[in-house]
Design a protein around this nucleic acid. Structure first.
Lengths: 212, 212
DNA sequence: CTTTTCATCCCTCAATCAGGTGACACATCA
DNA sequence: TGATGTGTCACCTGATTGAGGGATGAAAAG
C-alpha cells in the first residue's frame, strides 16, 4: 500500500518537483497538492493522507496556522514542515503547533524520502541546525538541573503537587486525610527546602522546575 | 587536522570497536578512551578533544553526571551520548545536562561517523525515536488550546506575570508604581476572567496555559 | 539501644489575601 | 452624548497564610 501524501506549497515549480521526486521514488502517492491552505481541514479530512508536506510561507493562512487547524481534529497524520526559514521563531512555532518534522528546503532533494520514512517510523526528522536549536531551547530552562528535587519527602511532594493544582491548605488536608496543621508543617518544610517564602514562589518554582 | 575524540565506555569490546570504526574512517583520531569517569574534568582538560562519545551506564559516575561536570568548564566540546536507553528520563536528563547528540547503540555502526560530522557542523544528531521524544516534550506545554488568553488587559497580564514570579501584592504595587489596592483590583478581575479563586490557581493556570 | 528522619498534631500572632462595594478619570466608540 | 472598558484608588470584613514555637510516635539507620 503506497504512502498517501498531500503537499502544501505555493511555489508551483517546487510543488511539481516534490511531486515528481516522490513519484520517482516509488511507493509514494501524492494524492493532492495545493498552493494555499484554504479549507485545509476539509481537504485533509477528504484525502486522509499519511503524510503532509507543509510549506510555511504561503498566501492566506500560513503553514503554522494550518498545522494548528489540522491538529484540532487529527493528531495522527504526520506533518513535515518544508521551509526556507531556520530562525527559531518559525521553528518553535511549528513544533508547538504540532509538526512532526522540520526540513529546510535546501536539504529537501537529499533528505525528503528519508524524512518521510522517518516520520512514518515514529521519528522526527529535522535538519541538523534545527535539531540543534531544539536542543538548545530545551537546555535554556534546564539551567535548573533536574535531579534537583531538593530532597523533598514523599509526603512533601504530594503536598506540593496538591498546592500547585490550586488547593488551599484545608483542601489538601482533606485530600490527604490529615489535619490542616500537618499540611502547614509540610508546607513550611517545603519552603525551607526550596528556599521560598510563599505559596506562589513555591508553586512557580515547582512548575518551572517540574518537580511536580 | 584530524578530529580529536575521546571515548567513555565501560564495555571493553565496544570501546575497541568504536576506536577501530573511527580509525578506519580516517580523519578521526581517538586520543584516549576510558572505562569510567573518574577524573573526567582533568582528563578532558588534558586531552582537549573536539568530540566526546559518552556512554550513560558506567560504574561510578554515570555519563549524565559526567556531562554536567564537563559543561561546568567547557561549553564548546561536542558531546554525543551513546547508549542503550531510550526512555525519556535518560534522554532528557542528558539533554538538560548539555549533551549535543544522543545516539542509540543499535544505530552506532551506521550513524556514528555521520553523527560526529553533524555535531561538528553545529547539528544535533539524534536517533529518530529520540528526536520524536524531544519534540513531544516541547509540544506538551502547548497542548493548551491557543486563543485562550481570557481577554486579560495589558495591566492585568503584567500583574499576573509579576504574581507568577512569586511577588506579593506589595511588591507588585512597588514594581508597577501603583497602590496596593489597585493591584488587588487587577487581581480580582484576573480571578474573574480566569475563573479561579486564589493566587495559586491563577499562577498555576497562567504557567500551564502559558499566558505569562 | 540510641539517634535521626518522617509524618503527624497543636498553639499564637501578625501579615496577607479574598470578596464585596463604591468612586473617579480617561479614552473609545456607537 | 452616553455607554462601555480600562486603570486607578479606597475601605471593610472575615478567612487564610507565614513564621515562630513545641510535641509525639513509628520506622529506619547507626
Amino acid at each position: 500500500m503506497p504512502v498517501n501524501i498531500i503537499i502544501y506549497e505555493d511555489n508551483a515549480n517546487l510543488r511539481e518537483s516534490l511531486r515528481s521526486l516522490l513519484s520517482l521514488a516509488g511507493d509514494y502517492q501524492v494524492t493532492a497538492s495545493f498552493p494555499d491552505c484554504t479549507e485545509v481541514a476539509l481537504r485533509v479530512k477528504e484525502h486522509k493522507p499519511d503524510v503532509i508536506l507543509m510549506d510555511i510561507d504561503m498566501p492566506g493562512i500560513n503553514g503554522i496556522e494550518a498545522v494548528k487547524k489540522i491538529r484540532e481534529f487529527d493528531t495522527n497524520v504526520q506533518i513535515i514542515m518544508l521551509t526556507v526559514f531556520d530562525d527559531n521563531t518559525h521553528v518553535f512555532e511549528a513544533m508547538y503547533a504540532g509538526a512532526n518534522g522540520y526540513l529546510l528546503k535546501k536539504y529537501v532533494s537529499d533528505k525528503l524520502i528519508h524524512a518521510i520514512r522517518e516520520v512514518l517510523d515514529g521519528g522526527a526528522p529535522m535538519s541538523p541546525t534545527i535539531a540543534r536549536m531544539v536542543i538548545s531551547n530545551m537546555q535554556q530552562p534546564g539551567a535548573t538541573v533536574p535531579g534537583n528535587d531538593y530532597q523533598l519527602t514523599i509526603r512533601e511532594k504530594e503536598t506540593l503537587q496538591l498546592l500547585s493544582r490550586g488547593n488551599s491548605f484545608k483542601m489538601i488536608a482533606a485530600d490527604l486525610g490529615i489535619s490542616i496543621d500537618t499540611v502547614r508543617t509540610h508546607i513550611k518544610r517545603i519552603y525551607d527546602k526550596l528556599h521560598v517564602r510563599s505559596q506562589i514562589e513555591a508553586v512557580s518554582k515547582a512548575i518551572n522546575e517540574k518537580i511536580v
